[in-house]
Amino acid sequence: MVLPLVAAIAVLGLAAIGSLLVGAQPVGVGSALRVLFADDRSDAAVIVHDLRMPRTLLGVCTGIALGLAGALMQSLTRNPIADPGILGVNAGAALGVLVAVVGFGVAGFSGYVWFAFLGAMVSTALVYLIGTAGPPTTAPVRLVLAGTAVGAALVACTEGIIFLDPKAFDEYRFWIVGDVAKPDLTVTGQFAPLLAVGVVLALLLGPALNALALGDEIGGALGVRIARTRVLTGVAVLLLAGSATAAAGPIAFVGLVAPHLARPVTGADQRWLLPYSAVIGAIVVLLADILGRVVLPSGELRVSIMTAIVGAPFFVVLIRRKRATA
């Protein structure tokens, strides 16, 4: 298990290097290494330090967060096609952005990142309140249904605000198309502490989630506090997916794809699946971002568009396989 994880981390390192080199203005390996550790204000230094380094770091952080959150959601709901959006994270964050723009006149990612996170937090809490009311044995199903219902209601509120205040759409549209190309490290600096707490919490939950996968009765007999484990898992998903969505906007399919790419190596063991999903999630985001820079003769495709182009066929194949298995 360790050697494949080391190999995955090495691939992530290569993807990060590629993210620094590839773009509208290519930078050679020698030039990148020279300006990376030197006080240089050449064109190559400006491209690497001011443009691609913040983009690469945010891409890595976003991929780690979404990959981990996806693995946690699939374990929590016992649903192999679950992703963080089931808890209403994306819908809540979107509404938070609009409230910031319309209600407080906030502009720019660094201004409304906290409003987006607050919206994600409120929506997740609401889904949990609805989804955990009742017999604990049906909690995973109720969470999915509650998330779908709350998400639909929040989307309706968002569309209503846009309809009443079309000017808000000008700011909102830049956030809703998820992207990691931010002009500086401010957003990543705001995001990183939440990511760190979420990663530590997620990794600590691995053994409890393994026991819970055997069923509530067996998990309880093994000493797992079922309600607490579910709540802490939800908190971890919020910290990871909420902060990533707030920082980079909605980026679909990463949380779905990463755990499925990890399972052929790790199996269902959450102690290994979680770190593998984090690394693979970061690789997926960086590779999608790199492809988005070169796929068009001029201009770029945002990373959320690239993950959707790759992730949608993956989702269809996954559904067909699950249906055939059933």
Rank of each mutant, 00 (worst) to 15 (best):
F169Y: 15
F169H: 11
F169R: 08
F169W: 09
F169L: 15
E171H: 14
E171P: 07
Y172S: 02
Y172R: 08
R173Y: 05
I176G: 02
V177E: 01
V180I: 14
V180L: 05
A181L: 14
A181F: 07
K182I: 04
K182Q: 12
L185I: 11
T186H: 11
G189W: 11
G189K: 15
A192C: 04
L194I: 03
L194K: 07
L194E: 01
L195C: 12
A196I: 10
V197N: 06
V197D: 04
V197E: 00
G198A: 07
V199H: 06
V200I: 14
V200N: 08
V200M: 06
V200C: 05
L201N: 08
A202G: 11
A202K: 04
L203I: 06
G206T: 00
A208H: 11
A208L: 01
L209R: 06
N210Q: 05
N210R: 06
A211Y: 14
A211T: 10
L212R: 12
L212E: 09
A213Q: 15
A213E: 15
A213V: 09
L214R: 12
G215Y: 00
G215W: 03
I218A: 13
G219R: 13
G219Q: 09
G219Y: 11
A221D: 01
G223A: 09
G223N: 12
G223D: 09
R225C: 04
A227G: 12
A227M: 14
R228A: 12
R230K: 14
L232K: 13
G234Q: 08
V235L: 10
V237F: 12
V237H: 07
L239Q: 07
G242M: 09
T245S: 07
A246C: 15
A247K: 05
A248I: 01
A248M: 01
G249R: 08
G249N: 09
G249I: 03
I251Q: 01
A252C: 04
F253M: 09
